[in-house]
Design a binder for these strands. Structure first.
Lengths: 142, 142
DNA sequence: GCCGTTTCTTGACTCATTCCAGATTCTGGA
DNA sequence: TCCAGAATCTGGAATGAGTCAAGAAACGGC
């Protein structure tokens, strides 16, 4: 797990100021992958005391823009964030309980980036979401 | 393009009652792929006269549940609907203007359904979203 | 330590979507 | 064709994630 000082370096590398809310959000996202914004607000507050939700929303937007965290938002779910960016992994989402699990990319590094026909688009990312039922939910449902 | 009577059959097959709002919504979704809910409400109203937004939301939910239309919702966008379900196609989304374009699946029929490790999930669908810039936006951005 | 710029706080606000309760409409069987 | 039961539609109000704006506070280079 990255130490706080690693987050400081990440922020500096991205030309972003190092503030306690930002460090707390980076720590929260790293420790709780796929957490939604509300959970992150709770974790950050447990860490720092009172922090405005606006600050957390703003920090998350800045970090997403800088590429330090990734925002994922499966249909019908609120925004969630993760900091595991190096590997090109995808997500398994349970239709019943909404839990999200990481899956390594089946084919290699950036395989899915190749669409059959790009329609002239400049593609920079391919996002893959596998929908289904998690082990718990598939047994509970008759 | 399917005639109205085809939609009647589709609804009957799905054990759903045939109502004018439902036919209008099916027609609107078929004629305007990737339309958001608000546009669909407008199209349906142009067709039938006054229809409550609640009716359209409800119809869309029922049709989605019955598998007659598919709901897609890229991050940061409102819900959009399409009726092109038979082929396993994916979507190209422009980060700048939000336009959505269909892409045929690169590999074949249901290739992406195979995750490297399913973590015990029962996977029923693989959704692929390619993010990038459409031709217009990539030339307008410096 | 000081100053200019960036970031955080506070509080109100937007807008897609859902909930509710009552009125209406549709379907299958007689 | 008509009826009863069930599903659907209406209109209005509520929910809740996310955004906007203006002033206060914190960061980091000097």
């Amino acid at each position: 797990m990255p130490a706080t000082s690693d987050f400081v370096l990440e922020l500096r590398d991205a030309r972003l100021r190092v503030t306690r809310p930002r460090l707390a959000v980076l720590t929260a996202v790293a420790d709780h992958p796929h957490a939604d914004t509300d959970s992150i607000i709770g974790i950050v507050r447990a860490d720092l005391g009172e922090v405005s939700h606006q600050a957390v929303y703003d920090v998350l937007r800045v970090l997403t823009g800088a590429g330090l965290v990734r925002r994922i938002q499966p249909s019908g779910s609120v925004a969630r964030y993760e900091s595991q960016l190096a590997d090109n992994h995808h997500h398994l989402v349970c239709r019943a309980c909404g839990v999200i699990v990481d899956v390594q990319c089946a084919v290699g590094l950036t395989p899915c980036l190749t669409a059959s026909d790009d329609h002239g688009f400049t593609i920079d990312e391919a996002e893959v979401v596998y929908w289904g039922l998690c082990p718990d939910c598939s047994t509970h449902v008759s």
